Simulated assay, not measured.
Amino acid sequence: MIRLARRSEPVAAGAATATAADMAAESAAAEAVLKRLQLTVTRKLDGLLQGDYVGLLPGPGSEAGESREYTAGDDVRRMDWPVTARTTVPHVRQTIADRELETWLCVDLSASLDFGTARCEKRDLAIAAAAAIGYLTVRGGNRVGAVVTNGETSRRLAARPGRNNAHGMLRRIFQTPRAPAGGTAANAGYLAEAVDALNRPPRRRGQAVVISDFLTDDIVRSERGDTEPAWERPMRKLAVRHDVLAIEIVDPRELSLPAVGVLTVVDPESGAVHEVSTDAKVRKAYADAAATQRTAIAGALRRAGAAHLRLSTDSDWLLDIVRFVAAQRRGRSRGTTR
């Protein structure tokens, strides 16, 4: 795993600040890592989207084409009923595969992603996932833009074509400052707001990718009468017009606790400190609660109509992306995915 260079932590009042030379050296190191990341992605993932496609999730296209008579084996969901009614002969509507794609990323870099116990921090993995999506979809005149949030503030990076613009976008994502302690907790609806920003202004059909750990406390009442995460509704709205991919970032320590006696843990969102006794009973209860939480997140993403890819800090994220895209291709060819 490529570990991104970490920015220096804020210094206390009166302490010496970083010199211009130090900042230049840090910027050069970050640039080198991003270039290496680009090379890694293009070498191992290039070629996954060859041919006609509508996005990272390959499909037949979205633009309406001509109608032709129905033949055995045609998808009945593409029946052109107006033409069929006029001619009294069954017709299907052909579609034209999009060759120019606009992809928007929603990248969550809130305090809960400043955590990692394996190969990297979740923040690093989120940036690597953004790089993979950006470099995969940017060729052929395609445009890539992003909405980036650190839980306290968010900013929109305009969609532009070309690998140089994609690289510049990743540099700005990497330079996103970390939210101060408690900043995320004060704005629990930050992820819902960032996802909803992808719906404005209305765009033609394309690709939307949400990269987050989806660990938010913002709960709203759904139309069904029960509760749901606040980000589920804007994602459902987004999926009406676009192919939506949700990339969930996890760390193994979020799923289970180690047997290390009394463990001191810190909530990165609020800064609260707790001491937890990691006996067998507590570890089992924690693992059960974590599994329930992840099942609820997967269910919310499924209801929203988003494809779901989980990346972990202790696994080969490139291999996971390759497997996911291959599975989506097989599912589309068999008509088993949305």
Rank of each mutant, 00 (worst) to 15 (best):
G65P: 00
D52I: 13
G73E: 07
A72W: 09
L49K: 13
P60M: 08
V89H: 12
K35H: 07
L48V: 04
T71V: 15
Q38E: 13
A32M: 12
A32T: 08
T87E: 07
T87W: 00
D80W: 01
G51D: 15
W104D: 14
Q50P: 01
T42S: 12
V92K: 00
L34K: 06
Q50G: 04
L101E: 10
V92S: 01
G51T: 15
A29L: 11
Y53K: 13
V89P: 01
T40Y: 02
K35P: 00
V76A: 07
W104C: 13
S67A: 11
G51Y: 10
T88H: 11
V41E: 04
A97K: 05
D75N: 13
T84P: 05
T40P: 01
E102R: 08
L57T: 15
Y53T: 10
A97I: 12
D75W: 04
E102P: 09
E100G: 11
V83R: 05
L105S: 07
L48S: 03
T87K: 01
H91E: 15
R68C: 03
T42E: 14
L49I: 12
L57V: 11
T71Y: 01
V76H: 12
M79W: 09
Y53V: 12
D75F: 04
T103G: 06
R43K: 05
P60F: 04
T95H: 11
L48T: 03
A28K: 05
Q94S: 14
V54Y: 06
A29F: 08
R77C: 04
L49A: 15
R99W: 08
T84I: 10
V89C: 05
G61F: 07
W81L: 08
A29V: 09
Q94D: 10
L49C: 14
R78A: 05
G55P: 10
V107Q: 00
Q38Y: 02
Q50M: 05
P90N: 02
A72L: 15
D75M: 06
D80G: 02
Y53C: 11
G59Q: 05
R93T: 06
L56Q: 08
R93Y: 04
K44E: 11
T103N: 07
V54C: 13
T103R: 03
A28N: 08
D46H: 09
V107N: 00
S62F: 08
E66H: 08
P90E: 01
T71I: 08
V54H: 10
L39F: 10
T103Y: 04
E102C: 12
L48I: 04
E66R: 09
W81N: 02
W104E: 14
I96Q: 12
Y53P: 07
D80Y: 02
H91C: 11
R77Q: 07
V107F: 00
L34S: 06
P90H: 00
D46F: 04
Q50K: 03
L45G: 07
S67V: 14
P90I: 01
L37A: 00
R68D: 05
E63L: 13
A97H: 06
V41G: 01
A72F: 14
A30C: 09
A28M: 12
L49D: 12
K35D: 10
A28G: 04
V92E: 02
M79N: 06
Q94V: 13
V92M: 02
G65H: 02
L37H: 01
E102L: 11
T88E: 14
T84A: 07
T87D: 04
T71R: 04
T40C: 02
L101C: 12
A72S: 15
T40F: 02
E102G: 11
A72I: 13
W81A: 02
